[in-house]
Simulated scan of single mutants.
Amino acid sequence: MAAADQVPFDDRGLAFGDGVFETVLMRDGAPLLWPRHRARLRHGCRTLGISPPDDAALEACWQPPASGLEVLKIMVTRGSGGRGYALPERQRPRLLYRRTAFAPARSRWRGVDVCLCALRLARQPALAGIKHLNRLENVLARREWQSADIAEGLLADTDGNLVEATAMNVFWRADDAYWTPPLDASGVAGTLRAALLEQGRVQEAPLSAETLLESSAVEQLFVGNSVQGLWPVNALVTPRGRRLRRFAEAAGAPLQADAHALLGYPTLSRED
């Protein structure tokens, strides 16, 4: 496993997006939800046919430990070599990482507006769920809005099914339960999402963008990830800010409390 502070020109991660990454919340030197991040990174490496880094190499990414909150970003590329898209005969994967101080967007725990993006995610089961380095769909979707009043953008696939947000997973409340879309054809299977599924706090179910817009059965909506926590959605808007529909107040909802407990974030009350 080769390491580098700078990516060489011929690195396949740079050239082709041939690799995977993880973004990990660190609290006082400890990586939160680490078994899930490690498992997803290894699964992504296996999917792409890259030898994953061993535990010692990964643990070195957060040494020496520090106090407070940080975000650790880990990238594993296939390394250099090969002619065109052909794989190198001898692969030497490259591990890169960086730690930065972090503070969550606490004001967004009380509620945000999100837009419905025009871009549609391609359905590709071979890559579904993993956090590979080719995020061009997310980049194009993020270009659709500029207003600071819009916190995130929701993405549906080419069949019109809700999948995720540009950098977060999606959850909703309907029929006295919490739900999240299945990610068997596209999208990133987030580690916070995985933990909530394992706890039985959410279940998988399909939801079309059309139903999200029109059905009053979808009472509350959330976007969240393992770094920022869970943001309740106040309103769904267009990228230009025109309101499409509102959702019931959800700050301090049980799902948010469960998600924040996993990350060491405070639970909000209705009065916060």
Rank of each mutant, 00 (worst) to 15 (best):
V20E: 00
V20R: 02
V20A: 07
F21H: 04
F21T: 05
F21V: 07
E22W: 04
E22M: 01
E22Y: 02
T23S: 15
T23G: 12
T23I: 11
T23M: 11
V24Q: 06
L25D: 05
L25S: 04
L25V: 06
M26H: 05
R27V: 11
D28L: 09
D28Y: 05
D28F: 03
G29K: 13
G29D: 12
P31E: 07
P31L: 11
P31D: 07
P31M: 09
L32E: 12
L32W: 13
L32M: 14
L33N: 09
W34G: 06
P35T: 11
P35K: 12
P35E: 08
R36F: 05
R36L: 15
R36P: 04
R36Q: 13
H37G: 14
H37N: 14
R38P: 08
A39S: 14
A39P: 10
A39M: 09
A39R: 15
A39I: 07
A39W: 14
R40G: 06
R40K: 08
L41Q: 02
L41V: 02
G44D: 07
G44W: 10
G44H: 07
C45M: 09
R46F: 09
R46A: 15
R46I: 05
R46M: 13
R46D: 15
T47N: 04
T47E: 00
T47C: 07
T47I: 01
L48F: 02
L48Y: 03
G49N: 07
G49D: 07
G49H: 03
I50C: 04
I50K: 11
I50H: 08
I50T: 04
I50V: 13
S51T: 01
S51Q: 01
S51P: 00
P52G: 12
P53A: 10
P53I: 10
D54S: 01
D54C: 08
D54E: 08
D55L: 04
D55K: 01
A56P: 00
A57L: 06
A57G: 02
A57M: 05
L58P: 02
L58C: 06
E59P: 00
E59W: 11
E59Y: 08
A60H: 03
A60N: 05
A60W: 00
A60T: 02
C61D: 07
C61G: 07
W62G: 10
W62Q: 12
W62P: 10
Q63V: 06
P65Y: 11
P65T: 11
P65I: 09
A66S: 15
A66M: 13
S67H: 15
G68S: 03
L69P: 02
E70R: 06
E70K: 04
E70L: 08
E70T: 10
V71C: 08
V71S: 05
V71I: 14
L72K: 11
K73Q: 06
K73S: 01
K73L: 04
I74Y: 04
I74A: 06
I74E: 09
M75Q: 10
M75D: 00
V76N: 01
T77N: 03
T77S: 13
T77P: 00
R78H: 14
G79F: 02
S80W: 08
